[in-house]
C-alpha cells in the first residue's frame, strides 16, 4: 500500500523514548493557528523552496502558477533554479519500502524505535496500519497525534502501536474550533479510550501565548487529565521560529495571536494538582 510522506528524520530526540527515527506523514485535518510544519498540512505533493542561498533571481517565480491568488511553484521552477533550492515535498512510498528503510537501522533503534508523526499520521490510517503490522514484533512504534480521527480507526491503531504522544491543545470546544478549525469532541473521546486502554502514552500541551497557556485552559486540561488518571505531561513552549517554513511554500504566517507575548509556563497550577511535567 502507498502512502505520502514528507520527511524521515533519524535521531529525532523529542518524539518518544530512546533513539528513534520519525516518519512524517503528509496531510492534516487540523489548521492550528501556530502550526510550525505547514508542509504537513496538504495531502498532495507540493514544491517548496529552501530560503538558504536564494539569490532572488526570480527564475522560479517567473514560471510559477497563480492559484486562487497564491504562488504555486512548477516543475520548470525546479529546473530553472540556479542554486537548486526547489524540491518536491511529499514522496509516495509503499509500506514495504518504508519499513525496509526503517528496519535497516533496527540495530541502532533497540533503545527506542520508530515514530509516525505528521501532518496527522491517523489521516492516512490504512497506510499507517499497514506499516504498523509490518513492524510489529520487530521494532517499537510510537504515534504522535492530535487524536483527531474516527474512533473505530483510532481503536485499531491503539491496538497496533506501542506508544502514543497525544496532544491536548484546548479544553474548550469553541476555542478549539476557533484555533484549530475542528471540534475537540472526537479527540477527547479518543483520549479517554487511550487512557483506559492500558497502552503507554504521554500527553503533550503546546503552550501558545494567550491561547493555550491561559489559566482557564490549563485548568480545563488538568481536569481532563484527572478524569483519566494522568499525572505527567510534557510542555512544548511556543517558539518564534514557528513561522520559518511558510516562506518555503510562498505562504505567509499569520497567527491569530500575538506571538511576541511571552509564554506562561503553568507551573503553579500543575504543581497544585500534582501533575508532574517536563518542558521540551
Amino acid at each position: 500500500m502507498q502512502g505520502l510522506i514528507f520527511s524521515i528524520e533519524e535521531f529525532s530526540v523529542y518524539d518518544g523514548p530512546g533513539i528513534r527515527t520519525t516518519v512524517f506523514l503528509k496531510g492534516c485535518p487540523l489548521r492550528c493557528s501556530w502550526c510550525h510544519n505547514p508542509e504537513g498540512q496538504s495531502y498532495n505533493k507540493e514544491i517548496v523552496r529552501s530560503p538558504n542561498g536564494c539569490i532572488n533571481c526570480n527564475n522560479c517565480i517567473n514560471v510559477a502558477d497563480i492559484v486562487d491568488g497564491k504562488t504555486v511553484f512548477t516543475d520548470d521552477g525546479i529546473k530553472n533554479c540556479p542554486m537548486g533550492l526547489l524540491r518536491y515535498s511529499g514522496e509516495n512510498i509503499s509500506s514495504e519500502q518504508l519499513c525496509e528503510k526503517l528496519l535497516k537501522n533496527q540495530n541502532m533503534l533497540q533503545s527506542g524505535g520508530v515514530t509516525f508523526s505528521g501532518g496527522e499520521p491517523l489521516a492516512q490510517s490504512d497506510f499507517l496500519l499497514d506499516c504498523l503490522t509490518k513492524l510489529k514484533g520487530k521494532i517499537h512504534t510510537a504515534i504522535q497525534t492530535s487524536g483527531y480521527c474516527d474512533t473505530q480507526t483510532f481503536k485499531k491503531v491503539v491496538g497496533m502501536a506501542d506508544y502514543f504522544l497525544f496532544d491536548l491543545k484546548l479544553a474548550d470546544d469553541r476555542l478549539h474550533r476557533k484555533y484549530t478549525g475542528v471540534s475537540n469532541a472526537v479527540i477527547l473521546n479518543n483520549f479517554s479510550f487511550l487512557a483506559s486502554s492500558g497502552r503507554e502514552f504521554v500527553v503533550r500541551i503546546p503552550l501558545i501565548p494567550t491561547v493555550t497557556d491561559s489559566d482557564e485552559n490549563i485548568c480545563g486540561i488538568v481536569n481532563l487529565l484527572k478524569q483519566s488518571g494522568v499525572n505527567y505531561v510534557e510542555l512544548l513552549p511556543y517558539n518564534q521560529m514557528a513561522g520559518a517554513k511558510y516562506k518555503m511554500l510562498c505562504r505567509e504566517y499569520r497567527p491569530d495571536f500575538d506571538e511576541r507575548v511571552a509564554v506562561k509556563v503553568p507551573e503553579r497550577i500543575l504543581r497544585k494538582n500534582n501533575v508532574a511535567f517536563k518542558i521540551l
Binding site: F11, V13, Y14, G18, I19, M108, S111, K278, I279, L280
Partner: peptide, 22 residues
C-alpha cells in the same frame, strides 16, 4: 537545539555509546 535539555543530552550520549559499541 538537540542539546537544549536533559532528554537531548541523554540521547546524544546514547548515540555516542552506540557508535563506540559498533
Amino acid at each position: 537545539s538537540v542539546l537544549k535539555n536533559d532528554i537531548g543530552i541523554e540521547k546524544t550520549a546514547m548515540l555516542v555509546k552506540l557508535f563506540i559499541d559498533m
